[in-house]
Simulated assay, not measured.
Amino acid sequence: MTPTAEPTQAPLLGEPLSVELMNTVWADRGHVHDALSTDGEALAWLRAVGPRLTAIAPDVATWLTTDRPVDLTTTAADLRRLRDALRRLAADATHDPRPAAASALRDRDAARAVLNQAAAAAPPWPALDWSPDGEPESTLHVAHPAGAGITALLATEFIDLLTGEQRSQLRACLAPGCVLYFAKDHNRREWCSPGCGNRARAARHYQRRKSAQA
């Protein structure tokens, strides 16, 4: 059975791909949603970020555009498991205080094991391309079927993020009702999106008025 072709419901904010994966858990009007809960939803998200994936590893393009990619059910489950592991580790890295944002995976050692297993399951590798008229170039390749390779790419990116200079830029969005993460890309950025910034300012204004009236 071919999965639904509906667009993903996950917010796409231009964050690093591993952070975009974490943000497939999102909230709306007080309800937390999972944008990877079915095979079709997982495929919709992968296709939404597909141009960014294929820019890194061109091999994944054919897999993403197939009506029902090989091992899609396994890939969807692996993505959910990796996503929960990333959110657990990100919560520690950002000292995330938000109960609604808590990962389904509560143990940090278990989360670390899931991340490392995903990175090692189908690691991508560089290959040299050198056409007669061009310059030598490195192209990243993944094993077939490409689903496990995509999961490994996302896991590897998060390891680089968490252990590199960007670690201090990873943030939990503390706007009211938000459960998203973001990478702080300029000094004045406090929220994952302008919408969350507006809600946070409105909440602060309300609290100031309430305190003044009291």
Rank of each mutant, 00 (worst) to 15 (best):
T4L: 02
T4G: 06
T4W: 01
A5Q: 04
P7F: 01
P7W: 03
P7L: 03
T8H: 09
T8V: 11
T8Q: 06
Q9H: 07
A10T: 07
A10Y: 07
P11M: 13
P11V: 14
L12R: 02
L12Y: 04
E15C: 00
E15R: 08
L17Y: 05
L17V: 12
S18R: 04
S18W: 07
V19N: 10
E20W: 02
E20I: 12
L21V: 13
M22D: 02
M22N: 05
N23E: 00
N23P: 01
V25F: 10
W26T: 13
A27S: 15
A27K: 06
D28C: 09
R29F: 12
G30W: 13
H31A: 12
V32E: 09
V32T: 14
H33P: 00
S37W: 01
S37T: 09
T38F: 06
T38C: 02
D39Y: 03
D39F: 05
G40Q: 06
G40T: 03
G40K: 09
E41G: 02
A42P: 03
L43T: 04
L43R: 02
A44W: 10
A44C: 01
A44D: 06
W45Q: 13
W45M: 12
L46V: 03
R47S: 10
R47D: 11
A48P: 09
V49W: 06
G50A: 08
G50N: 00
P51A: 13
P51Q: 15
P51L: 15
L53P: 01
A55K: 10
I56K: 14
I56E: 07
I56M: 14
A57H: 07
A57F: 08
A57R: 08
A57Q: 04
P58L: 06
D59M: 14
A61T: 15
T62M: 06
W63L: 09
W63D: 05
L64N: 01
T65H: 15
T65M: 11
T65Q: 15
T65S: 15
T65P: 00
T66M: 14
T66K: 13
T66D: 12
D67G: 05
R68N: 03
P69E: 06
V70F: 08
V70D: 14
D71C: 13
L72H: 07
L72W: 04
L72I: 07
T73L: 01
T73C: 03
T74S: 11
T75M: 07
T75Y: 08
T75S: 07
A76H: 10
D78Y: 04
D78L: 14
L79K: 12
L79D: 15
L79G: 09
L79V: 15
R80N: 12
R80K: 11
R81C: 11
R83G: 15
R83Q: 15
R83V: 15
R83Y: 11
R83M: 12
D84N: 13
A85T: 08
A85L: 02
L86K: 10
L86C: 10
R87A: 11
R87I: 09
R87P: 03
R88N: 11
R88E: 10
L89G: 05
L89K: 06
L89P: 02
A91F: 05
A91Q: 11
D92I: 08
D92L: 13
D92Y: 01
A93W: 01
A93Q: 05
A93G: 00
A93N: 03
A93V: 08
T94K: 01
T94G: 06
